[in-house]
Computed example of a mutant assay.
Amino acid sequence: MRSVSNRLRPDTKSVAAERAYDQQLLTSLIGDIYDAALDDALWPTALERSAIFVGGVGASLFARDTAAIAGNVYHNFGIDPYYQKLYFDKFSGLDPLTMPHLSAEYEQPVATSDLMSYEEFAETRFYREWIRPQSLVDFVGVVLEKSASTITVFGVFRHERDGLVDEAVRRRMTLLAPHIRRAILIRRIVDAKDAKAATFADTFDGLTSGLYIVDETGRILHANRAGKFMLTARSPMRMAGGKLVASEPQSAQALRNVIAAANIGGASLSDDLALPLTGECGERYVAHILPLASRGRHDVSRPAIAAVFVRRVTLPLPSPPGVIGRAFRLTAAELRVLYAIVEIGGVPEVAAALGVAETTIKTHLGHLFEKTGATRQADLVKLVAGYASPISVQPT
Rank of each mutant, 00 (worst) to 15 (best):
A374Q: 09
S319M: 12
G366E: 05
R187Y: 07
G93V: 06
M99G: 13
S135C: 08
A233L: 12
V258F: 08
G56V: 00
I324E: 01
P109L: 02
I131Y: 01
D272P: 08
L273V: 06
S270T: 09
L185M: 11
N263W: 07
P303L: 08
S50Y: 00
E107I: 12
S117P: 03
G31V: 03
V342S: 02
G279Y: 00
F77K: 02
P96E: 10
A378K: 09
I189L: 14
F309W: 05
G266R: 04
A36S: 12
G279A: 05
A353P: 01
I220F: 06
F91Y: 15
G282V: 05
Q108G: 03
S103W: 07
P395V: 11
P303G: 09
K193C: 04
E18T: 14
N76R: 02
G325F: 05
S147L: 05
S270F: 05
S251W: 01
S60Y: 02
R181P: 08
L330C: 09
A37K: 04
A304D: 04
A46N: 04
A111R: 00
A353Q: 08
H367C: 08
G218T: 04
Y212C: 04
T66Q: 09
D299V: 10
A262F: 05
F53K: 00
L38P: 02
L8V: 09
L42A: 14
T199Y: 12
A46L: 02
R297K: 07
A46D: 03
E370V: 14
R336N: 11
A68Q: 09
A246E: 03
R219W: 06
D35H: 13
E129N: 12
G163Q: 05
D114M: 01
M237W: 03
R225N: 09
E48T: 09
Y34V: 03
A260P: 02
L47V: 09
T66R: 11
R7F: 12
G296Y: 06
A17V: 06
D194I: 14
L354Y: 03
F88N: 01
H364Y: 12
E160M: 06
I213N: 00
A168S: 12
R312C: 10
R311T: 13
K362G: 06
